[in-house]
Design a protein around this nucleic acid. Structure first.
Lengths: 246, 246
DNA sequence: CGAGCACTTGATCGCTTTCAATAGCTGTGG
DNA sequence: CCACAGCTATTGAAAGCGATCAAGTGCTCG
């Protein structure tokens, strides 16, 4: 098991201190949160919550990547959210989980017991305010994704997903736009397919096509180099600075 | 012009008083809201806001239907939200509109000047709390829609859209599940296509197919009768009470 | 070395799109 | 009252893209 000495973690040295649901909390409020928090770790592939189950907690992803998925009876599944560090899991005011949450890498979560968290939220506008902003951001992301799912071609979908991943971990290390961007895919081909509403074969084919066309370079299955972000964004149909030449 | 004597509208007789962003406000808070509110009407087809424009207000749909759409440079468009009475328009804390908002029927909006509204929100947890719940609901709806867009067939998409519309205006008049449900589509075939990530021809074909198969009855283009909601939900792949017979 | 897994690649099928023609409705003007 | 334009919707035929079915590759781990 990979459970570090996790109870020793202090909010002040927490890597997501300024981006998670607690971002706007002051020292006093942190003390209250600290009193109801505990850490949990999940291994890659492990299910954090099943849709329909009662959730005893809400919490933040501290490190690692998890997915939010929805499944039909016949097995078709669609990813509806990608949970990266600082993202919030669970919905205050609702008991059952609406989606499956699965760790795709090893994940550390900072959990709050649900009832005490809800009570605290009532008393602490800073938490509710932060959660509102985070939820509005998620809603924007979901709507952007609706355009991808509804209107983009398979190739554009792949390019869009790569762009998103680059953008999201560029918000940690600030990366320029022109230069080589290098990163590791946190998703299997199947998870990519579930995100994009494609089959894994189509994902594989389009990855090969993007590689063949020089849009990306692949080492192994997961390590990716993007020579030109502008090119990738064009392929995504996002038209970054497109039309600039005209 | 169809502008009724609209400044006379009083919050207490407002049809969306208990479902809109003001739902949790008490009498004092309503007075404050009232001071910064004004009504606007839009005719069917009129654009309320263009994506990228500065929004001077936020507000609620009082009556009518509007759509939220996103467009790519080449003209592909995807609807990302369907705004029905009580739905909130605009994002506090952001100046530019992210999406096009278009009235698809005549629409009455209750608008709040943006800056005063934001100030009021800071002072009034009831508003922020309500907005959080509404935003979480919208996020759920968007995620449900991602499954529709990513994984459902054209026929299932149409059935899903019809189900949603029935469900949403059943939340006004409570309707049982077994009986005949009758309603008017608030959307053109093209708008349906934009919602579902299809072409309007495919929408038309599938509407005809559902009619031929007795899932719906059509009078004119817009007036729809659903003989069996259970059947419609089956067609949507939602499997309502499905397997109940087994 | 072989089993298991993630991924790749090939061949074919079928659903949705595309292109095109037609129908039905509404409003306008002769 | 009818003719016609303009719009929305329907229907048909053909094409294309992604899905499906099916091998085959490469890697890790026992």
């Amino acid at each position: 098991m990979n459970t570090p000495n996790i109870n020793s973690v202090n909010c002040n040295s927490c890597p997501i201190r300024h981006r998670a649901v607690c971002a706007r909390c002051n020292a006093d409020e942190l003390v209250e949160l600290d009193a109801i928090k505990y850490y949990r770790t999940y291994e890659a592939g492990q299910t954090v919550i099943w849709a329909g189950d009662i959730m005893g907690f809400v919490g933040s992803v501290v490190s690692g990547v998890a997915t939010l998925t929805q499944t039909m009876e016949d097995g078709r599944t669609q990813m509806v959210g990608l949970l990266l560090p600082s993202d919030f899991v669970g919905r205050p005011g609702r008991d059952g989980a609406a989606y499956n949450v699965v760790a795709t890498t090893n994940v550390v979560m900072c959990c709050f017991r649900k009832k005490p968290f809800e009570d605290l939220m009532e008393r602490t506008p800073h938490i509710a305010q932060r959660l509102l902003v985070m939820t509005l951001d998620e809603l924007d992301a979901a709507r952007e994704w609706m355009l991808v799912l509804g209107r983009k071609t398979a190739r554009e979908k792949i390019a869009s997903l790569l762009s998103i991943i680059v953008r999201r971990d560029a918000s940690l290390q600030s990366t320029g736009l022109g230069e080589n961007v290098v990163f590791d895919l946190p998703l299997t081909r199947e998870a990519m397919a579930d995100y994009l509403g494609l089959t894994l074969e189509t994902v594989s084919r389009q990855m090969s096509a993007l590689k063949r066309d020089g849009v990306i370079k692949l080492e192994g299955k997961r390590h990716i180099t993007v020579p030109s972000m502008g090119r990738l964004l064009e392929e995504a149909g996002d038209d970054s600075d497109g039309g600039f030449i005209g």
